[in-house]
Design a binder for these strands. Structure first.
Length: 107
DNA sequence: ACACTGACCATAA
DNA sequence: ATTATGGCCAGTG
């Protein structure tokens, strides 16, 4: 698989999210060049399920900090458990202090 | 090649 | 506040 794919670029960014941090689909999309292609970001992660398992997709949430992708994990609890396990506070399936945990993709 | 779908986002009503 | 709609781009049937 070449690195020319939109997906691979997403993978690289997501893999670089540090422990205990989160980012948003919009930010990744914007970082890639198109703010409107946020859907592709989440979609890339969906593909990642059958591509690689090293992608911390649980650290990627939507603009509101809501765990939109939790239903794509095995259980609807996995994403929350993983984030809380890293010190991220989750309240009613959303991140309590999103700005506090937000990580901006700069590399 | 066409139509539909998708882990989003912004705007309009 | 909530619901609808358009836009974005790539993958799949």
């Amino acid at each position: 698989m070449a690195d020319d794919n939109f997906f691979d670029r997403v993978y690289k960014v997501v893999k670089q999210i540090p422990y205990g941090k989160v980012t948003t689909y919009g930010m990744i999309a914007e970082f890639l060049g198109s703010k409107r292609s946020a859907r592709m970001v989440g979609w890339a992660l969906n593909s990642s399920k059958h591509n690689l398992e090293n992608i911390p997709a649980h650290r990627v949430v939507n603009r509101q900090g809501i765990l939109t992708g939790k239903r794509h994990f095995g259980s609807h609890n996995t994403m929350k458990e993983l984030l809380e396990s890293e010190g991220v506070k989750i309240v009613n399936d959303n991140i309590a202090d999103l700005e506090k945990y937000l990580w901006h993709p700069s590399k």
